[in-house]
Nucleic acid binder design. Sequence first.
DNA 1: GAGTGGTCTAGACCACAAT
DNA 2: TTGTGGTCTAGACCACTCC
Lengths: 237, 237
Amino acid sequence: MTSAEKSATPRYQQIKQDLLDRIAAKEWGIGEAIPPEQTLARDFGVARMTVNRALQELTQAGVLVRRRGSGTYVAPPRVHTSLLQIRNIADEIAERGHRYDSALLRLESVPASADQALLFGIETGAPLFRSVIVHRENDVPIQVEDRLVNPEVAPHYLAQRFKTQTPSAYLSMVAPLAGAHYTVEARLPGREIAAHLAISTKDPCLVVLRTTRTEDRVASQAELWHPGQLYQLTGGV
Amino acid sequence: MTSAEKSATPRYQQIKQDLLDRIAAKEWGIGEAIPPEQTLARDFGVARMTVNRALQELTQAGVLVRRRGSGTYVAPPRVHTSLLQIRNIADEIAERGHRYDSALLRLESVPASADQALLFGIETGAPLFRSVIVHRENDVPIQVEDRLVNPEVAPHYLAQRFKTQTPSAYLSMVAPLAGAHYTVEARLPGREIAAHLAISTKDPCLVVLRTTRTEDRVASQAELWHPGQLYQLTGGV
DNA sequence: GAGTGGTCTAGACCACAAT
DNA sequence: TTGTGGTCTAGACCACTCC
């Protein structure tokens, strides 16, 4: 290798990314075989074990399917249970034939706490954008969305008004989102959330914590608070 | 290598299992360091890369935490479930390296209400089987499972004891399950559920309502109650 | 039999943490 | 400086699939 250059990202990561890009570009269709390890190793100029690691991880992630003695294939897109298909709340309400509206309660820049800094990969105290919005269905509050946004991903976030477009729609417009991670739990609301939802602090809420990422960093973290009785996540297999 | 013996399971898998067992046996406590790769490689009599793979996978599974330059540590227990899969709670707990046990609280035949009759496609007042089980992880109640079962699908349901096999495992054994439907909501537990979960009636619970079907009818409907703070559903895209 | 993935080796150099 | 994990190499043998 002539190169003295140090790439920050390991070789197998680069290979994963390259393969992901080429799959996204439909270089290989669903169910189609990608080149064997030997070939990829030669093409990328690495040892077979390095390609193997990239392929193993993509397989574990459900992107590829491997069959010993046969080959490596592009996996069919995973059908996310609709439990996961947490949709744009405005669309969802419109689909029910109801009236949707929202109110922007906060839109500000806040210094990152240590935890937040770690999550977003920025320095503690560095600015993060924050929006708090209440979403209503037929005038009934149905979700309070408390969102932190990475300024590097959406530098003009604070200039939005979020009347015609939800933050999540805006974000997916300005930055291609590569993935999301969810947690769902039951919690009691604080005073402020309870007030916005027009419920008591003793009424249980369904809280969806959602982290979205672009290719290389965390774009946004949202806490979605719903009255437990009014809101349900549903899905099937 | 003198050995001609073929172990069906690969070496790194055996190493993973061995480490899981030793963690379960509290050979190393939470946050404590396990021996470095070098040492493990010597002890197991394998190359460092083989130990490395075992440790990588346990790290990815959340069992270990690794810090470059420092060491490998036993991760704090997670209490998570994938939204994506219908998993057996016993397996899930075992996978975390924890101790699972359960208690059968009720096992009876009940007359179907009108709603239930409609759901199961039987006549109102016709018998339905019902079981109530509390599932525990390291002696902490983590789920109360209140389940109704279609007697036509599992006629011998009441003869089970559900000690070594959960109802869901039993059902998928006696009847091929064709699909499932979920609802998740936040609710306050009634007196009985709260007692079984050892929480207060004011503590919010995450309730998963799950209906499973065979090819042609509803096999079972379950209410799975979890303490809101202890239990989270997680998923990603 | 040829080609594929699954696993394993015995080294190596590096970045980073602890000291 | 020493020890740790992170990565990579250039081979190897095997089980399996496909022809």
